[in-house]
Amino acid sequence: MRKAFLRHVRRFPWVTNVTLYGCLFAGGDFVHQWFSRREKMDWSHTRNVAVVAFSFHGNFNFFWMRFLERRFPGNSYRMVLRKLLLDQTTAAPLATTVFYTGVSFLEGKEDIMEDWREKFLNTYKFVNFALVPLYVRTTFTGCCAFVWATFLCFSRQSGDGTAAAALMRTGTNNLLYYNITVFY
């Protein structure tokens, strides 16, 4: 089954990666809601997260990863650092901005920049290029995005953009909370 899946990804890399990325991102919202307010799921929010993920995040990440690999080929220490630096200084802020403003826009908020202004810096604080082959890199990033989307959805709905607030809300033990608070 794994070989068949990888064959499919190699044959249809864009469609497969964007679809998986979008599903994983929307899944992050589902997981957030399941743990934070299971009795009252907001499916329109999950839909909005999916729209932003399918229309922007999956496509952007697919082409961004290809651009980085073509511009900085290989997985030497130097190339990985270049890609990582560019990814974290260019793509991560853009993708986070699109998430906060895109979901706010789809929800019809009057000030679509409000969540971004309140949470972006906290959110932004929070070995893809060396170990993951290019043909599955977008899907791998999508799996990471699943966790990231869960955090972003929590932050947008009820947090302040910090990992510590997310962990305290979900009932994670105080020792972990203390370690994260000290780290930041």
Results as ranks from 00 to 15, higher is better:
A4L: 05
L6D: 09
H8I: 13
V9S: 10
R10P: 02
R10M: 13
W14D: 01
W14M: 03
V18T: 09
F25C: 13
F25Y: 14
F25M: 15
A26F: 13
G27E: 12
G27W: 03
G28H: 05
D29W: 04
D29R: 01
V31Q: 03
V31D: 01
S36V: 11
R38Y: 06
E39K: 08
K40T: 12
K40M: 03
D42W: 02
W43M: 11
W43E: 14
S44T: 14
S44F: 10
T46A: 07
T46H: 00
T46K: 01
R47P: 05
N48I: 08
N48A: 05
V49M: 05
V49W: 04
A50G: 15
F54L: 08
S55F: 10
S55N: 05
F67C: 02
F67L: 11
L68D: 14
L68H: 10
E69S: 09
E69Q: 04
R70C: 11
R71N: 01
G74E: 07
G74C: 07
N75F: 13
R78E: 10
M79P: 00
M79T: 02
L81S: 08
L81T: 11
R82K: 13
R82I: 14
K83R: 09
K83E: 07
K83H: 06
L84Q: 04
L85F: 13
L85C: 13
Q88Y: 15
A91V: 06
A91W: 13
L94Q: 06
A95R: 05
T96D: 09
T96R: 12
T96C: 12
T97D: 02
F99Y: 15
T101S: 11
T101R: 07
T101N: 12
S104G: 06
S104H: 03
F105G: 02
L106Y: 06
G108K: 09
K109R: 15
K109P: 06
K109C: 03
K109A: 04
M113H: 11
R117F: 06
E118S: 07
K119I: 00
T123Q: 10
N128V: 14
F129I: 01
L131Y: 08
L134A: 11
V136W: 07
T138V: 06
T139P: 06
F140P: 15
T141R: 06
G142L: 02
C144E: 13
A145V: 09
A145M: 10
F146G: 00
F146S: 04
V147H: 00
V147D: 00
T150W: 00
T150K: 00
F151T: 00
F151K: 00
F154Q: 01
G159C: 05
A163Q: 09
L167Y: 03
L167A: 05
R169H: 12
T170E: 10
T170A: 04
T172L: 03
N174E: 15
L175A: 09
L175F: 14
L176N: 11
N179H: 11
N179Q: 15
I180G: 08
F183T: 10
